[in-house]
């Protein structure tokens, strides 16, 4: 296989929080991985593993305490604005402005990405079509169901047609049908050449979606590779078994 330039590359990424009660917290500790263009990288970890912190560093929301990351060709520490312009970030705790309509929400982020009105209108129409938002596009968000909100969130993440998608537990709190819809949509994004980094604690989503998986626990990336590589290395078929083995064991890489 010809080695391509990675779209996302984390090198020894580390984040230390200084917490009043707990003192120093190494939320992310020496995490390195790469994600090739057009691939989905799954970050699998339990609560408090460091997924959100890692993704926030990749999205330039917080600065790494150590190590570095390159996203879409730009260093997160050196060129944060360029990175943000090329990344669509969907936070786990994401929410929308209740008093805006879905269309206004999408337009707002389009404007923040410097798109002109014509382009915003075209993108809105396209995304509404793809996500099936036609009947609630002009309704205020505070009247939406969770699924409608998540669709709106995804639409505003994609408004600038980013090369890289950073999705932090995008199916959190959704019912089975809505979650399946999201998973299908992420797969379609990959088909269109987007690079996706996807954090979750749901094994089945990883199995369905991800080209490569990183198992993160206690801030450390304990295992990394394609699903097949991981299965082979740990002698288990079931991802959950692999996860428990890795997370329970000591620093198995």
């Amino acid at each position: 296989m010809i080695r391509t330039v990675p779209m996302i590359e984390a090198r020894h990424l580390t984040k230390v929080f200084r917490d009043k009660k707990r003192g120093e917290v190494r939320a992310v500790d020496d995490v390195s991985f790469t994600c090739e263009p057009g691939r989905i990288y799954g970050l699998l970890g339990a609560n408090g593993a460091g997924k959100t912190t890692t993704l926030r560093m990749l999205a330039t929301l917080i600065a790494p305490s150590g190590g570095e990351a390159v996203v879409a060709g730009f260093g997160v520490a050196t060129h944060p604005a360029e990175v943000r312009a090329r990344v669509g970030f969907l936070a786990a705790s994401t929410a929308l402005y209740g008093r805006l309509t879905a269309r206004e929400t999408i337009a707002y982020f389009g404007q923040l990405h410097g798109l002109d009105d014509a382009r915003i209108a075209a993108r809105t129409a396209q995304l509404a079509e793809e996500l099936g938002m036609g009947d609630f596009l002009d309704r205020r968000v505070d009247t939406f169901s969770t699924g409608m909100k998540q669709k709106t969130s995804i639409a505003r993440t994609l408004v600038q047609d980013p090369d890289v998608l950073i999705l932090d537990e995008p199916t959190l709190g959704l019912d089975v049908m809505a979650a399946r819809g999201i998973v299908r949509f992420v797969r379609e994004c990959r088909a269109r050449g987007k690079t996706v980094i996807y954090s979750t604690h749901i094994m089945s989503e990883v199995e369905k979606l991800c080209d490569r998986v990183g198992i993160i626990h206690g801030g450390r990336l304990l295992a990394e590779g394609t699903l097949d590589e991981l299965r082979e290395r740990h002698g288990e078929r079931d991802l959950e078994e692999i996860f428990v083995k890795v997370a329970g064991g000591e620093g198995v890489v």
Binding site: R56, A59, T60, L61, A81, R84, A85, V87, F89, L90, A91, S93, T94, A95, L96, Y97, G98, F109, L112, H113, G114, S153, R156
Partner: peptide, 14 residues
């Protein structure tokens, strides 16, 4: 509190 700030900060606007 509502969780919209993080999204706003992830936009290219400074």
């Amino acid at each position: 509190e509502r969780g919209t700030l993080e999204t706003l900060l992830s936009s290219p606007a400074s």
